[in-house]
Design a protein around this nucleic acid. Sequence first.
DNA 1: GCATGATCATGC
DNA 2: GCATGATCATGC
Length: 496
Amino acid sequence: MLFDYDDTSEDSIYQYAKKLEGMTFQQIMDAFNNSEQKYYRNTKNQSFKVAEDTFSYTVPDSKAKGQLGNVIERYYFGYMPNGIQDADFSKTGIELKQTCIDKKKNGDFTAGERLSITNISFSKPVEEDFYSSHVWDKIKKILLIHYLRDKTIDRWQYQIKYVNMFSPPAEDLNIIIQDYNKIINKIKKGKAHEISESDTLYLGACTKGKDAKSSMIPQYYGEHILARRRNFCFKRQYMDYVLHEYVLKNRVPYESIIKSNNLNMNVSFELQIIRLIEKHIGKTDKELCDLFNRPYNQNKAQWTDITYRMLGIKGNKAEEFLKANISVRSIRVELNGKINENMSFSPFKFKELVKEEWENSAIYNYFETTRFLFVVYQFDGQYYKLQGAKIWNMPYYDLNVIAKKEWIEIRNIIRDGVKFTHKFRLPVNNNLPKSKNSKILHIRPHAQKAAYLLKDGFMIGDIHKNANELPDGQWMTTQSFWVNNTYIEKQIEDLI
DNA sequence: GCATGATCATGC
DNA sequence: GCATGATCATGC
């Protein structure tokens, strides 16, 4: 029967919620419409409460974002969602959170979005004690509902796949608390405007509101500079881990750096990682290969392999790096202090890029949410010698001002038509911004082979494999964003 | 077979 | 010598 649960009993709530598995949002609405229950069940009161005067049921607009968010609370649990920062099921402390699963091309499930937890107030003093914070209230006991998102079908047909009780395990909570402290410390310094989601590991401070212009608020601390509104969230990579570990329970167990080394969680996770690497400063790549019984063959995986060995990991995947979305990058500095290579990122499709605005772009999202472990080696005339390591994320100004400007320029050229010159053989030149004209970003080919199909009839390579179509119908070798070696040099100059 | 990270090679 | 365009290599 609809709304039939005991809101003082955790088990009753869970058992009732569990029946959602397999239902679509449409079916939830249908069940409500076909039932006699036309009032909310307000969890603040003891019993069913008739609230006809405030009750106004309308079919939510299927296109409006976020509308699915209230359906389960209102029409399955029967309570009026409120804006009060209180647990949804206040008598048990349970917080209802729903989130989506996407299906990857290979059929695997992946967490579709970060999980928004609660808003961050910049306009009043911070709560210093994590266990007294709204964040803890909202995450200590989550009724976690996963539905399958499929952008090709109507949202009302999305199906609820899994219902679980979730609380962050102790080992994650240590890192979550460190993240919390990092965020509130930035706020206390009056630096809320410089917060980035990539500042932290599992608990992030994600932006809120449709763009920066419409969602700026003044800060209580410091110079009261306007800052972008933000929410606490579990970062998408962490939600991906939660999905596979606790919901699907099918995760291949990856090695853990902490467990491999019995680390002390009173020291920040980042510092512990760096210390493990710093133990080996001064050793050459050859010495490190010998130390870890790895053949010294200088192939492309060698320096990454060495990094994982220093962290006590046998393979090339570490649990914490997956959960925290840390990308390991080895950087080789030459005798003259320069880095020869630029750093590559994921290829993109031209027609998708031109549809994006900066704030919803793949590249902004990537740098806003990804941290890097830079491991730096310098050539000594014979070998590359370990210089040090640092955890890095792109600073606020670099990302939101410089990279933004450079990205927009690239997008506009692609949108308005790339101009090519060539000699009826490779290479094909184009009028896109070059690395020497940019501070941070440029794009360049990233494919197995060059492939073009141009208006003038020039054609080379397998365009369906190695190229993709431009808005004007020409095809160009698939490109990636690259970060300039000169920019990377500046980020690591303290290590050389 | 592709995603990801890394490096090569030619022309100016 | 360097910038740009092109390509390689590993792991999943």
